[in-house]
């Protein structure tokens, strides 16, 4: 891909920062002819971190594959806001089939490319946490266990945001959603439920599993590069803030994702063949309250009628993550 410098005024601080780096270390977003796989004009909400993450993931993959990329998309926000016929925001060969089957559709694409001797064409499947952790889990697990040459990316906004913020199995405990309202004896989503898809992915012993957030886009980019350097099934789980579903300001999306990491509730790590190979240490740990309080979905935990019991349970969840992944290790 030919590269041209982008004038500072067009792209902001990220590009400026990039100029201090060697060319090979610069973000794909720093170039004027960046692929813009998910281009402007789509209908995502202001502050939608899923749109941001999808753009970074696919643009990076486009650069790594030199444009030899096909994408299968699950039903959900990402599909709805990007394609209302006759307009499409996708500048890659892209297919949406159903809610539950993006992993299988990607398997089919990869199989034809292989049968035709075009294994240079790589395939990414993507969907939200509902399409990944819930309805699409069987297809995802099938793709994993067959070790099909697909990178699956889950943009996790912790609920069914496209249909009005209902609970998914990726919704954290105590979260107020449309189907776990903040009423009754145990308001919000129940404790003791939910699942970790990254750990499920690791249990398949696939070549590469990683988590990331929109708070560290260069890290996300690096993980896409690592993922694309492997063949076989790979899984990337990206925490993406949803201002509408979380009840946060559109301008706070990056900060919210950063706080999720810094309080220990969202561990950032990489794993190869079922073993954790790297974790991102927490540099400046904050209490979970710093992350929860700005979000209206957790408003019932605070104030005069707050829920100290629930808060304590959430603190213990953060502690457990920090212990499990050694996130506050010495020297970090």
């Amino acid at each position: 891909m030919a590269k041209m410098n982008v004038p500072f005024l067009q792209t902001g601080a990220l590009v400026v920062g990039n100029r201090l780096l060697e060319e090979s270390d610069r973000s794909v977003q720093a170039w004027q002819d960046r692929p813009s796989c998910l281009t402007r004009g789509h209908r995502a909400c202001q502050g939608c971190a899923e749109a941001l993450a999808a753009r970074w993931v696919l643009d990076t993959a486009m650069e790594v594959t030199d444009g030899q990329l096909m994408v299968a998309n699950a039903t959900g926000c990402l599909e709805v806001f990007s394609t209302l016929y006759p307009e499409s925001a996708w500048k890659v060969p892209w297919i949406h089939s159903l809610f539950a089957n993006s992993a299988s559709v990607a398997t089919g694409i990869a199989a034809v490319n292989r049968a035709r001797g075009r294994s240079d064409i790589r395939v990414i499947a993507q969907g939200g946490d509902g399409g990944t952790a819930d309805i699409g889990l069987a297809c995802l697990s099938g793709m994993f266990e067959r070790n099909d040459d697909v990178l699956y990316v889950c943009y996790d906004n912790q609920g069914y945001m496209n249909t009005g913020a209902q609970r998914s199995s990726a919704t954290p405990p105590a979260t107020r959603t449309a189907t776990t309202p903040a009423v009754g004896r145990d308001p919000g989503a129940p404790f003791g439920q939910g699942k970790s898809v990254p750990r499920i992915a690791m249990a398949h012993d696939i070549p590469y599993v990683a988590t990331a957030t929109v708070a560290d886009l260069r890290d996300l980019e690096a993980k896409v590069r690592t993922a694309m350097s492997h063949r076989g099934a790979r899984y990337l789980h990206v925490l993406v803030t949803c201002p509408l579903g979380w009840g946060t300001k559109s301008s706070e999306s990056i900060r919210m994702a950063r706080l999720a990491v810094r309080c220990g509730l969202f561990p950032v790590f990489e794993a190869e063949y079922g073993q954790v190979t790297a974790t991102t240490p927490i540099r400046d740990r904050v209490p979970v309250e710093d992350y929860l309080k700005p979000q209206r979905r957790f408003a019932h935990l605070f104030g005069p009628r707050g829920d100290e019991v629930a808060l304590e349970r959430i603190r213990r969840m953060a502690e457990r993550n920090i212990r499990t992944y050694d996130l506050c290790r010495e020297g970090a």
């Binding site: 096909m70 299968a72 297919i95 089939s97 159903l98 539950a100 089957n101 299988s104 559709v105 990607a106 398997t107 089919g108 694409i109 990869a110 199989a111 034809v112 490319n113 069987a138 297809c139 697990s141 099938g142 266990e145």
Partner: peptide
């Protein structure tokens, strides 16, 4: 594949490609 739903879904991806 792991189910008929996946069978048709893989077929969809392969045919679309």
């Amino acid at each position: 594949v792991e189910s008929e739903f996946a069978a048709m879904s893989v077929a969809i991806g392969a045919s679309a490609a």
